[in-house]
Design a protein around this nucleic acid. Structure first.
Lengths: 342, 342
DNA sequence: CTGGTGAATGAAATCGTTTACATTCACCTT
DNA sequence: AAGGTGAATGTAAACGATTTCATTCACCAG
C-alpha cells in the first residue's frame, strides 16, 4: 500500500541505492539526480519505513517510557517534559504503564527493548537484579530510583533522583520552630523507592529534634486518598500534617475545610512537589519543591546524550506559603497530660 | 547483542522455520521439539524483534495516539483510559504531541504511519483533506472531531465525538429557569472543533431563550487562564459564567473567592467535563458531564475492533451541584437602565 | 595514446522474522 | 510390496530499508 523506496527509485530512474543516498542527503550524489529523486519522493508522498530502517541500522529512533501509573499527575507532567525535550529531535515516544505490577513492568521492558533505543523507567518497581538485567538489553535511565549501594553499577545505566533530604529536613525544622511537636505523615506507595527515602529522612530528622511522628499509609497518593485521610485525621494526635505529595495535601485541605477546621490556625499542612498552579489551593499550600518536570528534564538529557553523566539529582527546598503557622496548642502534651496552670 | 531466533534454532538443533513455528505456538510441530525450543529460548532470554516481525507481517502490534497538548488533563485522562483498555492486549502505545501545530501533527502522522497499525487523532487540528489523506495511509480513529458533512467519508475512518448539545442546552435552560439573563462563556481554543460545537449550541440556545451571551476567548483552557478570566470578570455584565472545561471553571472559582465574591450567591458558575474528584472544587461545581474517559473508551473500542461501527458519540448531561443558584439581580437590566420603582 | 584516478552509480548482502513451498519419511491401503 | 498420504521439518524468498563493494566513465597526466 504505502510507497516504498523501490517505487521512488524506479520512478526516478535510479537504483535503490542512489535513491537511498539522495534521501538521506549525506552521501555523494550529483545535484541533478538528487533533485529528481527528492521531487519524485515528494510527489509519491514517500515516507521511509522506520521498521526497515531500524532493522538494518540497529537504531529505531524511538525512546521508551515506563510508568507505574500514568493516571498520577507526577508522571504525566514528567511525560510532558520529556516529550517536549525529546520530541523536538524527531524521536518517537513509546509508553507503557505497569499498573504497579513488577511482572508487567518487566514484560514491558522486554517488549520495548526491541523497538526503542533507550528506555526510561520511572519509579521502577523492579528488583535491582531485574534492572541490571534490563540494562544488559539496552541503555536504561532510571528516574526516581537508585540501585542499592551494594549493587555493581552496570554501564549503560543512568540514575536520576530527587534528593528529598534538604527539603524534608527544612520542612520539619520549619514546623519545629513554629512550635509543632506532633506531626502526622501521610505516606506514599509501599513499594516506592522515593516513599522509602522520604520516610527515612522524616524519621531521622524527627528523631533528632524530638518530634513525635505518626506515619499513616494510604493506598494511592491522590486527592481522594488525601480527602479520606483528612476526614479521619485525629486532631489530638498532631498539630501538623505532611503529605507525600500535593494531591494528597489538597485532599487534606478539602477535608479540613469541610470539617470546618481552620488551616493554618488549628493545624498546619505541607505538601510535596510544588505541582499546583498558583491559587488552586486554599490557603496557598506550603510545599517541598521537588518537581517531576525537573526530573523529566534530567531524564531527557540523559536519554538524548548517552555520554552525559550517569548520576543526577534534583535538589529540593521548602516553599513556605500560607498553610503553615505557629502551633496553637501546648508543646509536649504527652508529658503533660493535665493542663498546666496558667 | 540481543539473541536472535537463529541462535535459538542452532542451540535447539532445528531450523529457523521450526523455531519460529514452535515459538508462535500455532503451527504443527511435534511436542518434543517444541518443548526443546521453548526451553532453549527461555534459557537464552530470547525476545522476538518486533521490528523484523512487523516488516514481514505488515502489522506492528502498536497503536498511535496524537494529542494537541499532552499537558491538558483532558488528554491525559483520555490516554489513561485508552492505555488501560488497549495495553491489556499486548499492544504497544506510541504517542505524539503536536503542540497545536497542524504541520507538526501531519509530520507525526507520517512518522507514525510506518510503525503503528492504527492511529488515534484527538481533537485534530488538521484540515478535513489532510485527515482523509492520513486515512489513506492507515486506519484512523478521530476522537473529538468530525469531518464536515460535505466530505466524502473514507473507509478506515472512525469518528468519536462528544455530543454537547443535550448538556449545554440543559445548562443554559437551568440558568434561565433560575432567572439568569446574562451569561458569560469562557471559550476554548480557536482551532478546536469541539470549541466550535459548544459555541454554536450556546449561541443557538441563548438566542432561543433570549439570554444575553458574552463570549470571551482565552488562550489555553487551563486553571491559570480561568483565574485570569475570573479576576477580570465584570459582574455587571453577567450573573452566570459557563466555562469551556472544569479547569477553567476551577480558576474562576479561585479568582472569585480571592475577590470575596460569593458563589453561587452573587454569581453562578458551570464547568464542563465532570473531571474533578469529589470535593476538589469549593463550592462543589455544577458541570456538563462530558467525560474524556468515556471518549477514550469509545476510541479504544474502535481501535481494538476495526469492524466496529465507525461513528460513536458520548452523550452529555447537566450535573447540578452547589455552584449555581437563583439570580440575585434584576432580570433585564439592559431594558431597564433606571431602577424600577419598588 | 594509455593508464591511473576519483566521482557517480549500481549490485548485492544484510538486518530478524514469517511463510510459501519443497523435502523427507513413516505408515497405511490395496 | 508399491504407491499414495500426510505430518514434521527444512529451504529459501520476502518485507524495506542501509551500506559495502564493485563497476562505469570522464578526465587528466605522462
Amino acid at each position: 500500500m504505502a510507497t516504498t523506496i523501490r517505487q521512488v527509485a524506479e520512478a526516478a530512474g535510479v537504483s535503490i541505492a542512489t535513491a537511498s543516498r539522495a534521501l538521506s542527503g549525506s552521501d555523494a550524489v550529483v545535484p541533478a539526480t538528487k533533485d529528481r529523486v527528492l521531487r519524485v519522493a515528494a510527489a509519491l508522498d514517500y515516507t521511509p519505513s522506520r521498521l526497515a530502517r531500524g532493522l538494518v541500522t540497529g537504531t529505531t529512533g524511538n525512546i521508551g517510557l515506563i510508568f507505574p501509573d500514568i493516571t498520577n499527575p507526577f508522571y504525566t507532567s514528567f511525560l510532558a517534559e520529556v516529550e517536549s525535550l525529546v520530541g523536538a529531535h524527531d524521536l518517537g515516544i513509546v509508553i507503557g504503564d505497569s499498573h504497579e505490577d513488577p511482572d508487567r513492568e518487566y514484560a514491558l521492558v522486554r517488549q520495548m527493548s526491541t523497538q526503542v533505543d533507550r528506555l526510561v523507567l520511572t519509579s521502577s518497581r523492579l528488583t535491582d537484579e531485574q534492572i541490571v538485567a534490563a540494562a544488559g538489553r539496552l541503555p536504561i535511565v532510571l528516574a526516581n530510583r537508585r540501585l542499592g549501594d551494594d549493587m555493581a553499577m552496570p554501564p549503560r545505566l543512568s540514575q536520576m533522583v530527587i534528593d528529598v533530604d534538604a527539603g524534608f529536613t527544612a520542612a520539619v525544622t520549619h514546623l519545629y520552630k513554629l512550635g509543632h511537636r506532633r506531626l502526622t505523615y501521610l505516606d506514599g506507595p509501599a513499594r516506592s523507592w522515593s516513599a522509602r527515602q522520604k520516610r527515612a529522612v522524616l524519621t531521622r530528622v524527627c528523631g533528632e529534634l524530638g518530634l513525635n511522628l505518626t506515619i499513616v499509609g494510604i493506598e494511592r497518593p491522590d486527592f481522594t486518598a488525601g480527602l479520606a485521610a483528612g476526614t479521619d485525621l485525629d486532631l489530638d494526635q498532631a498539630t501538623a500534617v505532611l503529605a507525600f505529595n500535593d494531591q494528597v495535601a489538597l485532599g487534606v485541605l478539602a477535608a479540613l475545610r469541610a470539617r470546618g477546621i481552620d488551616v493554618p490556625g488549628r493545624i498546619s499542612v505541607i505538601g510535596c512537589d510544588d505541582s499546583l498552579p498558583d491559587g488552586l489551593a486554599w490557603p496557598a499550600l506550603s510545599t517541598v519543591d521537588s518537581s517531576s518536570r525537573a526530573l523529566g528534564a534530567l531524564a531527557a538529557a540523559a536519554v538524548l546524550d548517552p555520554e552525559s553523566k550517569q548520576n543526577g539529582s534534583v535538589p529540593t527546598r521548602l516553599i513556605v506559603r500560607r498553610s503553615t503557622a505557629r502551633a496553637a496548642v501546648d508543646l509536649n502534651p504527652r508529658e503533660e497530660k493535665t493542663p498546666e496552670p496558667s
